[in-house]
Design a protein around this nucleic acid. Structure first.
Lengths: 118, 118
DNA sequence: CGTAAAGGTTGACAACTATCTATTCAATCG
DNA sequence: CGATTGAATAGATAGTTGTCAACCTTTACG
């Protein structure tokens, strides 16, 4: 959990040659790493991956009652996965009457996508 | 865990209007979802995110003895995270004498990156 | 050979996760 | 109002994960 990245002093290298260039990379942005890891973690489940995939393929909002029968899972379990995605900011939801509609939150994965593309 | 995505029959809809368009999306590719979820899961930890970031910024191979002091973690814990990344195919390692060098496995995140960019 | 160093492995433990059943809540229908 | 329905929540449980201390393996060096 602790992620302190200040310029740490080199380990002692008593023996012959150094193991590698004595370069340290202190500029890994901790906040960015935590944000992107949170998004990646939410996507790190096949069910959630497929949920997002369905929502993305559908240009609009999809009812939960459409999502549940796609998987061999109970309704509360699907609801749980949707909640994980919602808390990661990847999807949003809207209640209309008796039904709940989910949609992809635009731009939520942008930071991760851009980093992967570097 | 079970991910069966055949065209399930619609839920009974006795009451008035249907909740949404009666469209079902059976073509979510299960294998692709599992592969991408595995990569995302491995990236779903801030430490591993930063490890990959360091390895990517460095054009070449980085010794473990350089990586450990970057984090406020024990060497076995860093070794564990590197193993997770290795088993996900994201990084590779090479032993040279007493030291172990890690590097980013090119193309490992390509499928995920491309899907995110869609 | 014996010692030391790098780093991987093991085992333990607490924290978290995926899943289910049962329940609750809110909105609609009769 | 009372019954029904879609969806979220609560509670339980089995499995997984992050971490460390301790140990083991391999390589180098004197």
């Amino acid at each position: 959990m602790p992620v302190d990245l200040e310029l740490a002093p080199k380990q002692k290298r008593p023996v012959g040659e150094p193991c590698c260039e004595p370069v340290v990379y202190p500029d890994i942005e901790r906040g960015q790493a935590e944000r992107m890891a949170a998004v990646a973690k939410a996507l790190g489940d096949p069910i959630r991956m497929q949920l997002v995939d369905v929502l993305r393929k559908h240009a609009g909002k999809v009812c939960v009652c459409e999502l549940v029968p796609l998987f061999d899972l109970s309704q509360p379990t699907v609801s749980h996965h949707l909640k994980v995605l919602r808390e990661a900011g990847i999807v949003g939801s809207e209640r209309r009457g008796l039904w709940a509609y989910y949609y992809v939150e635009p731009g939520a994965v942008e930071e991760l996508r851009a980093w992967l593309a570097k």
